[in-house]
Simulated assay, not measured.
Amino acid sequence: MSPAVTPESVVPAAQPPERVVARVRRHARVLILPAILLIAVAGAAAYGASVVPETWQVLAVIGGALLVVLLGSFLPFLAWLTRRTTITTRRVIGRSGIWVRVRQEMLLSRGRDVTVRRTWGQGAFGSGDVQIDTGHEKPFVLKDVPKPELVQGALQELMGEEQSRVAERRRAEQTMLDGDTVAWGGR
């Protein structure tokens, strides 16, 4: 009797471990206005506190300045800091949120096309939006990424590698499930 190859006897090829390729945040130009606001409010609060005669008025000016700085400078900085995109060899992971964390993942094998979209302001600062078409109504978008052409090239290369790996895996599974038997040493 000749041995036959069954799905249980075939050991699947070991997949390479998932590696982090890049970690990306929005371009830091979104922090220009909050930084200007911080400087302007600090100057205005210092001037206002030195001009008003009463102690309660000084406290009101400082309290108002702190409120404006909190809402106009600190919260935008915190929002920028907590939004991050991680690109690995198998997927793209988007994380965001200050109080509520949102995590969005996309397998690279699902991506079809990568497009860079730039406004004139993004072009002036060397950033852009990278859109990954997944065949659904809404593409997966990495907003305001620095050096978008570099990210686009890396994603296209990674998507090609992942799709060829998936196709190879499917071919191997198909040959195992075809019912073909291999006779060893048979004539």
Rank of each mutant, 00 (worst) to 15 (best):
M176Y: 00
L158K: 08
W80K: 02
G128K: 01
G94D: 12
E8V: 15
R117G: 07
R29G: 12
V116E: 03
R170I: 14
T119Y: 08
Q15Y: 00
V20W: 06
L59P: 02
G123F: 02
G179N: 13
V182P: 10
A79F: 10
Q57H: 11
D133M: 11
V114W: 00
P146E: 07
A183N: 03
V102M: 13
G94V: 15
E173A: 13
L78W: 11
Q57Y: 10
P7T: 11
T86D: 02
Q156C: 10
Q156W: 03
F77N: 04
R170C: 04
R103H: 00
D178T: 10
E162R: 15
R170Y: 03
P34W: 14
Q104V: 14
V24M: 09
E18Q: 06
T89E: 02
L81V: 05
W99M: 06
T82Y: 14
L78S: 00
K147W: 05
T119W: 01
Q15E: 15
A60H: 09
G43S: 08
F74H: 06
R84T: 08
W80F: 09
P76W: 10
L31E: 07
G97E: 06
V69L: 07
R171L: 13
P76D: 12
I93K: 10
P148Q: 09
W80N: 03
R103W: 00
Q122K: 12
V58P: 05
L70Q: 05
Q122N: 09
V166S: 01
P139H: 08
I87A: 07
K138M: 14
P139A: 12
V30G: 08
E149D: 14
R23H: 09
Q156A: 12
A45K: 06
R165G: 11
V68R: 01
V52F: 00
G153D: 06
R117E: 11
T6W: 00
E168W: 00
P16S: 13
A154R: 12
T134P: 01
S50A: 08
G126L: 15
V116Q: 01
A49G: 05
G153K: 15
E162M: 11
F77P: 01
L158T: 02
G123W: 06
Y47G: 13
W80M: 04
V100W: 07
Q57A: 14
A14Y: 00
L67S: 05
D129T: 07
G72H: 14
Q174K: 13
R103T: 15
L81N: 05
V58H: 05
H136N: 14
H136K: 14
R110C: 09
S2F: 11
L150A: 14
V116N: 04
V30E: 02
G186C: 08
R90H: 07
A172Y: 01
M159T: 01
F140R: 04
S109F: 00
A154H: 11
P53N: 08
S73F: 07
R29P: 02
A44C: 08
P148T: 04
R91P: 00
A42E: 06
R91I: 15
W80D: 03
L38W: 05
P3H: 09
L177T: 12
S2Y: 13
R101W: 09
R23T: 03
A4F: 04
E157Y: 05
L71G: 01
I62G: 06
G97Q: 02
G186A: 13
I87C: 01
R165D: 10
V20A: 03
R19Y: 00
M176N: 10
R112P: 09
T55M: 02
Q174L: 12
L177S: 10
P3N: 15
P12H: 06
G135I: 10
